[in-house]
């Protein structure tokens, strides 16, 4: 059974890289670049796991995460957060909001795969 992953990332190159890595690993990948419509995109795609950038146009990754955690259908969705601002406070904020994994850009491809696999329990 193919695992569904949604990548919300506004940098096209990064989104392409993640897509390639995950596709090659056998994931079913969809991407979304806007923060504003991200929550709706999650609802539509119903992924098994979500990769969420923090700095998004329109709505930050934190706000999106908060929205997801306060809605019943998305409360349990495993989320891997990515940020280019790797400060301690960012990680803390994300963890408080209920993130499952937190990675700082640039990241190691294998590490991302490991994290994702753990998140979906496989």
């Amino acid at each position: 059974m193919t695992r569904q992953v949604l990548v919300i990332e506004d940098e096209p190159n990064i989104a392409e890289a993640i897509s390639f890595i995950l596709s090659r690993d056998g994931w079913s990948v969809s991407t979304h670049a806007s923060g504003t419509t991200a929550v709706q995109a999650v609802r539509d795609a119903k992924p098994d796991v979500l990769i969420l950038d923090v700095m998004l146009p329109g709505k930050s990754g934190y706000d999106i995460l908060q929205d997801l955690r306060s809605a019943d259908d998305t409360r349990a969705l495993p989320v891997l957060m990515l940020t280019a601002r790797g400060q301690k406070t960012d990680r803390e904020l994300a963890e408080r909001l209920g993130v499952n994994r937190f990675m700082t850009k640039p990241f190691s491809n294998s590490e991302m795969l490991t994290n994702l696999r753990e998140l979906v329990g496989g």
């Binding site: 990064i14 890289a17 190691s108």
Partner: peptide, 9 residues
């Protein structure tokens, strides 16, 4: 970090 991320990946 943003361009570096693409480069590294």
């Amino acid at each position: 970090r943003t361009p570096m991320t693409s480069i590294r990946a």
